[in-house]
Structures are given as structure tokens and as C-alpha cells.
Design a protein around this nucleic acid. Structure first.
Lengths: 142, 142
DNA sequence: ATAATTGTAACTACAATGGTTACAGGTGAT
DNA sequence: ATCACCTGTAACCATTGTAGTTACAATTAT
């Protein structure tokens, strides 16, 4: 299965928070842009808040970036909204037969390869900052 | 969510086919090593056969590698067992609001980044051949 | 012929996801 | 102080992908 669209939604939210930093960013407003339910937005913002990417205030609140967009990279965002812990992008099959040469060693062998592939992907995400996303976003609109 | 364990199972199967190339590799035998149900094995083998990685024969059959393990890389295997088409490792959120600057351009912008990250991962997979997996497997067992 | 095995369909259980309603509690404006 | 507004969260639902299981027709070697 593919990686949850929460990631895409999270980036959308952060970009919007940056672009609309003067306005009041309620979950309903953001939901209007993302085109989903406000609760979905609040859930994602909750995750982003937990890792210190955004500030939110209960009550008549709205969210805002907790850090300059130049200092936020997509890997952080990815990690924030991802359920699976790091190193588990690829699922292993459990309990292969220890009496078999393959069963006995496959997990360790795959672990190395899987970690390498996952890291390569994450490295690309780490290269991209929110700043760049917003820049591209604005440029694409011209 | 993580990538289906079908991928890990597929590699397990292929490694076993190589190591046990003299024996008769029935779905039941393989299932014993993977520790799952024979039907699960047949399903995965079916996918591998469809892309020409293994040969299977109905009836009293058993499977075998269709190519030398040196010429099989993990990206092919990944593609064979993956449901999602290439380029969709990351899910986009659908129908963002076109009236919003962000909503209007987010998909195109993310697409670039997502494809880059996905490619980086696949490149790592492409680097690894079944040959190397088997080598590591045997080495780890000493 | 017979026994073994594949390929597939059908069903089940389970987990993640995203959407939705509901509501208690916080906050700012007046 | 009240009030309208908003957040945070729980609860529930429908959908989907996955993996395991049983069952069986079709196929093949012996």
C-alpha cells in the first residue's frame, strides 16, 4: 500500500500556514483548501504540533508555523505523520522457519537492504524544505 | 502503511528456488520455509511468473527461476508484487481546492518531490541482485 | 488410473484510513 | 459575564488492502 495521504495533507497545511500567515488559519478554512473534513485537519495539525512544527492555541485559535519554513524539511513532516516507526517502510514476513537456511537468515539479510532503500528515500525528503515547496507552489501558479 | 510483506516473501521464495534448485519446490515445501499457507505462496509465485521471473508448471509442478540469479534485481521483484503502480508510493490527497493558490498547485509540486524520493528508493533496490541476497544469506549462516 | 500439485475462487478476520457527528472546554470580543 | 467561535478528542462508520484458510477443477508424472 502507498504511504498515507496524511503526508501530502500535512505539507499542504504547512504551505498554507506560511502563505497565509497573516490570516486566521482555522481548521475549517484549511479544510476548505485541502477539501476534506475539519476534523481530519485537526488530527494532522495535532501530529505536527506534537513534534513542534506548528503552534496551535485552543479556543479561538488557528495554527501557525513554529519555525521558519526554511528550517522545516519534509523528512520531519514525514516522520511526524507516519504511523510506522522509522525502519519499517518494508514489512518483513514473520517467523520464517529457523530450520531452513533461508528462513533462518532472510530477515537479517533483508533488513540491511530495506534499511538502505528506506534511507535513500528519506534522504531525498530531507533535502527539501518547506521554503522550496512554497517557492515552487507560487512559481507554478504563474 | 508499510509496503506489503509480499515483497519479503517473494525474495524469500526466489532465494529458496535458487538454493534448492535441485529439489522439487512445491508451494507446500516453500510454505514450510516461509511459514505460511501454500496458497499465499502460489499467489506470489503467480505474480512472479507473470513478469517472467519464474517458471511454473501446473499439475505436479514446482517452480524454478526463469533467469540466473545474477540477472534478477530486487526492483523487478518489487514491481512484480506491488499493487500500486510505479510513481504512487506516496498517496496524494485528491481534489484540493482549485480556488486556492496552494490547492491549485500542490499536487504538481508534490509530484516532483515524491517521484524523486520514490526513485531514490527504487535505485537502491535495483542495485541488489538475487545473487547477492543468496550470498549474504549463506554467509550469515556461518 | 492414481496421487500429487497447481491455479483460482470464495470466504474470513483484521488493521489502517479517511470521513463524519458530537461535545466538552478554552478564548477573545463585546 | 456572556456569547459566538474554535480546538481537541472520542466514537462510529464505510472502505480498502492484506493474509490466512478451505475447496475444487484442471493438469501432470508415474
Amino acid at each position: 500500500m502507498s504511504i498515507s495521504s496524511r503526508f501530502a495533507v500535512a505539507i499542504h497545511i504547512l504551505a498554507l500556514l506560511d502563505i497565509n500567515k497573516e490570516g486566521r488559519n482555522t481548521s475549517e478554512f484549511i479544510a476548505g483548501s485541502v477539501n476534506t473534513n475539519p476534523v481530519v485537519i485537526r488530527r494532522v495539525i495535532g501530529l505536527l504540533g506534537k513534534v513542534g512544527l506548528v503552534h496551535t492555541s485552543p479556543g479561538v485559535g488557528g495554527a501557525s508555523l513554529a519555525r521558519p519554513p526554511r528550517e522545516i524539511n519534509l523528512l520531519e513532516v514525514y516522520r511526524a505523520v507516519q504511523n510506522d516507526p522509522p525502519g519499517e517502510l518494508f514489512a518483513a514476513h514473520d517467523k520464517p522457519n529457523p530450520k531452513c537456511l533461508v528462513g533462518r537468515n532472510i530477515q537479517e539479510t533483508l533488513d540491511t537492504v530495506f534499511k538502505r532503500a528506506e534511507s535513500a528515500m528519506e534522504k531525498e525528503l530531507a533535502k527539501v524544505t518547506l521554503d522550496q515547496i512554497v517557492f515552487d507552489l507560487v512559481r507554478a501558479d504563474r
